[in-house]
Each structure stands twice: as structure tokens, then as C-alpha cells.
Computed example of a mutant assay.
Amino acid sequence: MPEKEQQGERHLGIKDADAKKKTPTMGGVFIILSIMVSVLLFCDLSNIYNILLIVTLLWMGALGFTDDYIKVIKNNKAGLSKKQKLIGQFTLALGIALTVCFSPSIDTHKRITTLPFIKANEFDYSWLSPFSGQVGVYFTWGAYLLMIILVIIACSNSVNLTDGMDGLAAGTTAIVGVVLGAFAWVGSNIIYSDYLSISYLPGTGEVVVFISAMVGALTGFLWFNTSKAEVFMGDVGSLAIGGVIGVAAVLIRKELLLPLLCGVFFSEAVSVMLQNSYFAFTKKKMVREDASSNVPHSITIFKLKEFLH
């Protein structure tokens, strides 16, 4: 299996970063294969939700595989450019957004989603429109399309940035998958959804099957990915899993819960963006050479120092 040393991973600022460079990568190929075997055996392949999730898994997986292949096999540390990755992600996200909004198989006569921590938790995107009449309808659809695109791209990139830590990406995505699966199951049952004040979405029970396959594959991969990791999932795994999480959240109308569910991923993404922006303006690093630039490891180091003192 290809090794991380050839891939030129970003420096994590922790003591064992050099050792991680020699860890095999592209383990996400096996995650995708495991998911697809389960999906082909147990999912209803005619269900629109399954079709969208399968397309997302394979599309993002192919994008990540291309990036890893260039880095590892072609020995080109640059891989795909940021622009090329973004174009690939945007193309998929736009296709998913158009399908969700205009497919007759998906009930979107109301552009609603779920707000956390609020009893009357349904939020209608039409409330964002300052216009009335047909212009207001167009504005609402545009806002909903934009939100779907942003969610898918943000989730995919956030998980990708978190990949590399021992068990972090696989473990946290598995937990997020369990929560989304639970929401999908409750939302597919008219009795339970009414009792728990969750939007009833017929047909989303199939999302549970797909998510269960993903959680099972991630749990199996976690056996080999916990510290000290024997293999990393690479971009082929992280981009695919992140994309599936984003699409699944959109399909079950829980996209606004993602900042809470995916707090680790988003904090990592914000950390990287802040550091890149700081370096661009000051030409200096935001953290010391001996400090961790990774949010979860920064927290761990802080707690350890607090305990020792």
C-alpha cells in the first residue's frame, strides 16, 4: 500500500509527525468498497436518496483517489490544485442541489430545515426572502440551492482537513453518522416524527441503511487507524465520507445541525483558515514550531499541561 512519506502531508506540529509520514495511506479505498458491498446487498437502488448518496460517495471518492494517486504514485506532492478540487466538489454539489430542489421524487414544496435548541424547530428558507410574489419564490430557491452547495463543500473539506490524526476522522465521522442515522430513522416514521417534533420525510428510511453501512465500514477501519495508526484513509476516504455526511444532512433536513454535530471538523477548518490568512498577511506562523496547529491536539496538550501543573 502507498506510504504517507511520499505524499508530503502538512506538518502537524506534534512530536510524532515525522513517524506518521511513513504510515500507509489511501485506506479510504477499502472504506468505499465496504460501503458499496453493503449498499448493493441491502439498499433499494431505485430510491432517490440512495442514488444521491451513492453518486456522492463515488464522485468524491474518485476526486480524492485522483489527488492521492498524483501525490503517491506520480510522486507529485502538490496533487490536484485547490481550484481543481473545488471545481469537482462544486459540480457535484450543484447537481445534488438541483436534484433535491426539483426532483419529483423528493418533497420540497416547503424549503424547511431543523433549528437546534428551539421547540418550534422548523425553519422555512422563504423567511429569508425580502421579496414577495414570484421574485420571492426565486430568491428562496436560490438561497436554498446556495445553502446545499455550501454544506456539501464545507463538510467534504472539513473532514479532509481532519484526516491524518490517529482515529480522529474515522471515529468522529462514525459518531456523526450514528446521529444522522437516528434522525433519518425517526423522520421516516410518521408517528415517531410527530411525537418528537421532527419533520416527517417519507422515504428517508433508506438513508438509515446507507448510513449504517458507512458507520460499519468506519468502525472496521478504526481498528487499524487508532494510535499508532497502521493506515490513513487519505483524500479518497475523507473527501467521500465528508461529502456523504453533507448530502445525508441535506436530505433529512438537518444541515443547520452540522456545526454542532461536526464541531471538531469545523474548528479544524477555521483553525487552518485563520493560520493561512495570518501567514498571508504577516509572513509569520501563528503558532510556535513546537506547538500544535491542530485544534484537537492543542486541546489535548493544554489539558495535559493543566494536569501536570
Rank of each mutant, 00 (worst) to 15 (best):
Leu261Ile: 14
Phe266Asp: 13
Ala213Pro: 05
Gly205Asp: 11
Leu256Asp: 01
Leu218Ser: 06
Met233Trp: 09
Ser227Ile: 12
Phe224Asn: 11
Met233Phe: 10
Glu230Pro: 06
Leu251Ala: 02
Phe210Gly: 02
Ala217Asp: 03
Val247Thr: 10
Ile241Glu: 05
Phe232Ile: 09
Gly263His: 08
Ile252His: 03
Ser227His: 15
Ser238Ala: 15
Leu256Asn: 03
Phe210Ala: 02
Asn225Tyr: 10
Leu239Ala: 10
Lys254Arg: 10
Ala213Asp: 00
Ala248Glu: 06
Leu257Trp: 03
Phe265Lys: 07
Gly246His: 00
Ser267Pro: 11
Phe266Trp: 15
Ile252Tyr: 03
Cys262Thr: 12
Gly242Tyr: 06
Ala248Cys: 11
Ile245Val: 15
Gly263Leu: 12
Gly243Val: 06
Val264Ala: 15
Phe266Gln: 13
Gly246Met: 02
Val250Met: 09
Ser238Ile: 09
Gly234Ile: 03
Ala213Gly: 03
Ala240Gln: 05
Glu255Gly: 02
Leu222Ser: 11
Gly234Ala: 07
Ala213Phe: 01
Gly237Asp: 10
Ile241Asp: 00
Thr226Tyr: 11
Val264Gln: 08
Val208Gln: 01
Cys262Arg: 04
Val264Arg: 02
Gly237Ser: 15
Val244Phe: 14
Ile211Lys: 04
Phe266Thr: 09
Ser212Arg: 04
Ala240Gly: 13
Gly216Leu: 06
Val209Arg: 00
Ser212Cys: 12
Leu260Gln: 11
Phe266Ile: 15
Glu206Phe: 06
Phe232Gly: 00
Gly234Cys: 07
Val250Gln: 02
Val250Asn: 00
Phe210Glu: 00
Ile211Cys: 05
Ala248His: 03
Gly263Lys: 06
Ala249Glu: 00
Val236Tyr: 09
Ile241Gln: 01
Leu260Met: 14
Cys262Tyr: 07
Phe265Gly: 04
Ala217Gly: 07
Leu218Met: 13
Gly263Gln: 09
Asp235Phe: 02
Val244Trp: 09
Gly205Ile: 09
Pro259Leu: 13
Phe221Ile: 11
Ala213Val: 04
Gly205Cys: 12
Val264Cys: 14
Phe232Ser: 04
Leu257Pro: 01
Lys254Leu: 08
Val215Trp: 08
Gly216Pro: 04
Gly246Val: 00
Leu239Glu: 06
Gly263Pro: 11
Phe221Thr: 04
